[in-house]
C-alpha cells in the first residue's frame, strides 16, 4: 500500500514539472548569446581566414613584391634568372636602355622582346 502511494506521488511529480521562471530562461539565453561563436560571414572572409587573416594577406603581398623586385634587380651573387631567360644581364640594363632608345627593362624583359 505504501509503495502504491509512493508511486502515485512520483507519477504526480512527473505530471506536474516545476514551472521554470521566465527570468531563468532569459538569463540562459543571455549567456548563450554572450559566449556564442560568430557565424561565418561570407566566402571571401573564409578565404581570407585561410590565408591567415589580414596579417597573413599583408605578409603574402610583401613577399610577392619582394620576389618581383628580386626578379627585376637581383643582388650580386644571386643567379639572374630573368637575364638567363632573355639573354641579358641586370648590369647591362643601362646599356640596353641606350641601345633600345630609352626602352625600360622589366622583370620579364617584355619591352626588350618587343623593342
Amino acid at each position: 500500500m505504501a509503495d502504491v502511494a509512493l508511486e502515485a506521488m512520483f507519477q504526480e511529480a512527473r505530471r506536474t514539472p516545476a514551472e521554470v521562471p521566465a527570468r531563468l530562461m532569459a538569463r540562459v539565453l543571455a549567456d548563450a548569446e554572450a559566449v556564442q561563436p560568430m557565424a561565418p560571414r561570407g566566402e571571401w572572409r573564409r578565404w581570407l581566414g585561410g590565408l591567415g587573416g589580414l596579417q597573413g594577406l599583408g605578409g603574402l603581398i610583401t613577399a610577392c613584391c619582394m620576389g618581383f623586385w628580386l626578379g627585376v634587380a637581383p643582388p650580386q651573387g644571386l643567379p639572374d634568372l630573368a637575364g638567363a631567360m632573355f639573354g641579358v644581364q641586370a648590369d647591362q640594363v643601362d646599356a640596353l636602355d641606350e641601345d633600345f632608345d630609352g626602352g625600360v627593362l622589366t622583370a620579364f624583359g617584355w619591352d626588350i622582346e618587343e623593342g
Binding site: 548563450a32 556564442q36 561563436p37 557565424a39 561565418p40
Partner: peptide, 10 residues
C-alpha cells in the same frame, strides 16, 4: 549553435 545559429540556442 557553435556555428552561430541563434535559433538553435533558443
Amino acid at each position: 549553435y557553435a556555428q552561430g545559429d541563434a535559433v538553435a540556442a533558443r
